[in-house]
């Protein structure tokens, strides 16, 4: 199994990450080397094995629903590239023409 150039375009779209032509060439080569090595994983018999996504027994954690002090709005917005009237400003989503 190896990643093709077209697949790299698809991954770039899925990841919302623009890749330069050099990036694409380099990553295709590097990821194929890495995946070739990673293929040794396929030799392990895992037919009766459960997947582990969390190492310790975990259950829902509940707490009392009480109002506590929260971070002021202006501080929540202090790192945004662009704000207006207490909101985040994003590039235009809907074309009004």
């Amino acid at each position: 199994m190896s990643i093709t150039n077209e697949e790299m375009d698809h991954l770039s779209d899925l990841a919302m990450l623009k890749l330069s032509a050099e990036d694409k060439d380099l990553f295709t080569k590097q990821l194929n080397t890495i995946l070739e090595y990673f293929d040794e994983l396929q030799e392990v018999d895992t037919s009766d094995i459960e997947a582990t996504s969390h190492v310790l027994p975990i259950r829902n954690v509940f707490r009392e629903d009480k109002v506590e002090e929260s971070i002021p709005l202006c501080e929540c917005l202090q790192n945004a590239p662009q704000i207006k009237n207490g909101f985040f400003v994003v590039p235009k989503i809907i074309d009004t023409e």
Binding site: M1, I3, E7, M8, H10, L11, S12, L14, A15, L17, L19, D23, F27, Q30, L31, I34, F38, L41, Q42, V44, T46, I49, E50, A51, T52, S53
Partner: peptide
């Protein structure tokens, strides 16, 4: 950037079972 692309690949349709899920099972072992 490289890791985001690799991870996106491992989670993407058609490869999830082969890579991500397999890795999680080997994690159990």
């Amino acid at each position: 950037r490289r890791r985001i692309i690799l991870g996106t690949y491992a989670l993407s349709r058609g490869y999830y079972d082969q890579y991500y899920l397999k890795a999680q099972k080997v994690r159990t072992l």
